[in-house]
Write a protein that binds this DNA or RNA. Sequence first.
DNA 1: CAAAGTACTAACCAATTAGTTAAACTAAAC
DNA 2: GTTTAGTTTAACTAATTGGTTAGTACTTTG
Lengths: 227, 227
Amino acid sequence: MHPTPATPAAQATIRRILETAVEAFAEKGFAGARMDEIAKRAKVNKATIYYHIGNKAALYSAVLHETLGQRADLFIETVGRGRTPEEKLRRYVRCIVENIMRYPSLPRIFMREAASLGAHLPPQTATDLGRIIGVLTQTLAEGRRAGVFVAATPVLIHFMIVGALGYYAQMESVIQRFVREAAVDHPPAASFEASAKEIEDLVVNTVRAVPVTAIARPIPAEKGDRS
Amino acid sequence: MHPTPATPAAQATIRRILETAVEAFAEKGFAGARMDEIAKRAKVNKATIYYHIGNKAALYSAVLHETLGQRADLFIETVGRGRTPEEKLRRYVRCIVENIMRYPSLPRIFMREAASLGAHLPPQTATDLGRIIGVLTQTLAEGRRAGVFVAATPVLIHFMIVGALGYYAQMESVIQRFVREAAVDHPPAASFEASAKEIEDLVVNTVRAVPVTAIARPIPAEKGDRS
DNA sequence: CAAAGTACTAACCAATTAGTTAAACTAAAC
DNA sequence: GTTTAGTTTAACTAATTGGTTAGTACTTTG
């Protein structure tokens, strides 16, 4: 960012650039997004981006801070207010849902970031993400101690949530395309809120400890049982 | 592809190109992957790629056919051999696991593809993917009718599986990076096979109908079947 | 008013990149 | 040994792209 304080008009310009950039990066990825295109769609001269924000990497970093990094504290605080592990887990999912509703392009950016093993991920964002997953780790451990959750790797659960929500946030279209072309039976697109609720329930189900008597054991464990 | 029949030597060249291209596309995405780089790493002249396969889009298409499209039939057949819905579901997960073990880069490509709403996805691949998800749809419906599964959207379940496995196939490194930078408690990286088994169990748990009291009749285990 | 700082732009540049061409090489067939 | 079809390459081009520069308009300050 430019060191000097921005005037209200400049703030609006910056905001417009960032909003356009989020979409561009989500749509085409870091390599695919074009500075010229972003400038054009934000209705500013390309040099204005370089003046206010910096080069492509700086723009990407600014986008991620705006959409994710800034909100880590809120995440942690909100989840912490839950009383039971299940309530905390539901709050966790809902925090992610709300953030995605605010920034629908974020999961797409994030999916690409994961695919490139964090190649363009700014250090600050990596730290923020780690803190967010940290609160899930605590929640799952708490539920495990209380006997209401099974053992599950927190990062895995996190990415199951983000992955599933991400697909539903903006990817229903491609799903419908798959389905149409393959003539497969598939329910029509549900609203994002409805899908989010389904995912919330599924996630809780995923980690819920099942009464032993109800568990079928179709495939005997070979080397060492897992709980 | 070039219309004329390829000699064994040329076949090897094509294979080398495709193998290199898979990695390049996974690493950098469609836009980020460079034809020059692929040629260099495959130790062929760039024009050789254009001679044998075609332009960038054709190369991408060939890669996806090789790693996914070709295998749709095997998927469907293997899952179909499962006797109970749970066994079919487990087979489904294992099919995906085995394919990822064979092509570890595939989930990364696929994650990007989802993020771009299938922008570069060849029609044939979309169809094949739809057929694969179709067999999951049938399995889930079957389990629902039998009262052993809860209602769940097939596509959602599919992408939960692929997403979670994808992260574990090659993304453990970035996870460890998050964790390190945030000083969060996180178990050390497990083997992919172990993670795959965890995911298989979690997925089954995800769709399992929870007994209201203790009424659920477990599915009888079937001995001797292991694949 | 003038001096200075901020916000923005048109035009430009150097480097990169997908894609092409024509020539050269290889190995088997005649 | 020559031909021929298939394969590979060095060199090139046309277009794109990230980034820069010099200059302009507007606003604030002395």
